[in-house]
Design a protein around this nucleic acid. Sequence first.
DNA 1: CTGAAAGCGCTTACAG
DNA 2: CTGAAAGCGCTTACAG
Lengths: 378, 378
Amino acid sequence: MSSTSQTEIPAGDPTIAPRLNNGSRRGGARGGKSVSLRDVARMAKVSVATVSMVLNDNPRISRATHLRVQRLMDRMGYQPNRLAQSLSGRYTQVLAVLLPALRHAFADAYFGELISGICDRAGKLGYKVMLEQAKPEFIKERKYIEIFERRYVDGILCLGTNDRHHYLEDFSGGKYPALVVDNYFDQWKLDHTACDYQSGAEQVMNYLLQLGHRRIALLTAASEITTARAVRDVYLQRLAAAGVTADQSWMEDGKFTEDGGAEATRLILQRHPEVTAIFAGNDKMAIGALHLLSRLGVEVPRDISVVGFDDLQHAAFVTPSLTTVHLPLYQVGSLACERLVERIRGKTESVSEVLSTHLVVRDSTAMVRSNEKLDVSL
Amino acid sequence: MSSTSQTEIPAGDPTIAPRLNNGSRRGGARGGKSVSLRDVARMAKVSVATVSMVLNDNPRISRATHLRVQRLMDRMGYQPNRLAQSLSGRYTQVLAVLLPALRHAFADAYFGELISGICDRAGKLGYKVMLEQAKPEFIKERKYIEIFERRYVDGILCLGTNDRHHYLEDFSGGKYPALVVDNYFDQWKLDHTACDYQSGAEQVMNYLLQLGHRRIALLTAASEITTARAVRDVYLQRLAAAGVTADQSWMEDGKFTEDGGAEATRLILQRHPEVTAIFAGNDKMAIGALHLLSRLGVEVPRDISVVGFDDLQHAAFVTPSLTTVHLPLYQVGSLACERLVERIRGKTESVSEVLSTHLVVRDSTAMVRSNEKLDVSL
DNA sequence: CTGAAAGCGCTTACAG
DNA sequence: CTGAAAGCGCTTACAG
């Protein structure tokens, strides 16, 4: 029924009593009384029920009628009013994407890639995407439920979640279709799709150990994020397996930001000038580390190797270009959208999908070189 | 009426005939027949009209009734169904944000900052934000009109536009509220809010000329963008005023990407190894240039100065950190949202607002040093 | 295979 | 100041 032919057809048949209250205060574009189901029905000399069923490809309508009405709808440029459709029907055909309340959440390439995948898939599935931010008020006033109750959306995709987001528990009942994107929770039963952080971390550690590094620092982020814990666990295990015991002093919270990464690097260098490699839990922290090291005159990768995690567009263009773990964020977003829509449409199996990651070796890593401590003033 | 008290109140009064067809196939959360206006009216022993008017703060309702009904709505946890509200009313309270169909549009910090400003302001004004991408199909099938006709949105904010986007002309009539964000058009009468690109470019050129640079290259982007043309015009004028005539060979299209910026830089260096400064039309191209120069062993800023445009979060963390023009993108987005909503609510003055920009000097620029041509093999 | 009617949950003239 | 009623534009039992 959607057609590009925009042939203008007079909407009303003057021999029929005009509708009351036409177009003055209500509906759509100002003054432009648009074609309604009823108009089509009148023209086609069938009931509105029939037109509705044609619209919805109901097989009960004969091929002949279907075709005739279909054609008329196209000719008249009929566009179903989706408010009426949703009010009568079950679905809004809209999904919410919930972003964390970070200052630069929208400008963050990590979220951007996820959203990109979500939007593309949503479009293909006939869904619109609505943006929400998890501001304190949004959580406290339970607006994440309100958007369902007030019929804004059929489902919600939660990005940038962590263990302190207790409101997520409200979604575990399945009453309001929701899906956690690129994270997962053991404490709550929630659908999710995520990148394989564990395997990514293993690849990084294997690689660094192979290059001879043993004094490896970890820029992690708040341990209230399951995926971040997974990375830390692998880091500790692999070091232990290599006969190295790294205590807390080798790790620092870099808050997932450039500044945080730089600051964390500074703290670690103070404690451990003998560090030869830095493993950052995301690219932004790694870039912050690179930036600080460059200011300190520490040469990467000659003096210290740096590895990131995400493989954002940007990682290839810093100097030196960043060795990092590629995360299939676009795909995770796309899959999340797909699974959420299935859930909305009634599928009941819980979803827990993990997409594989791989290491991208660039110029910020090299064989361990010296055993001498760095001589930098911090 | 929105309240955090979630006291559960039995929805139906069993002494009153139950509504037909309750909750089975329709409306909101599965099975959870939610409280409707009618339920509130019944409980309050007033008409639905009265409850509706209380909801909309209609002054015709007495203070006493207003308070009583208000309190009841809170107690019953009433949430108006916004599909019904919009179907009966004039507005959807939703805005569309239209992004260009670039692969990484969502992951782009430039758009992200704009969207951030838009979303924050929209939330404050009681609007939801819906994401759309200007894919070929979206334009060809006039879906940018469909979202109005089908009552998805009340207005649209267009980002990343250019002169070839002829569909924008459809918005010049004012029938469908629209606003161009961070660009403007002389050929079409369109509302817009934008950064002051001209002043930004002037500041860059003044600064570079002051540093003694005369052989300045410009990484521009497609000249089909008004703001990009403004930058180019300033570049040419200022050079001319300094007695330098720069022909086309000093400019190159860097497509607003890192790769494009790197490639454009390469081409210009081939033609003009004597270049001492590169002025890039956005930060991404500047970063691409930095990356290439570093690979070529050209030292920035000693050998060549590089200036960007945008001041994305990221610009401070490349090495060397980027001198660039700060664009108030968050504010431009926020203002755009505000103005669009005014227009939706009936304001008719055309809007054309420009927010000022300023140069941020970092480490990628320095006094011109030598007159010797660079000796690099390209 | 098709139609007449009720319903979705609101808003707003129109009466009183 | 308040209520009864029509209407927004659809969908879906229920009849035939």
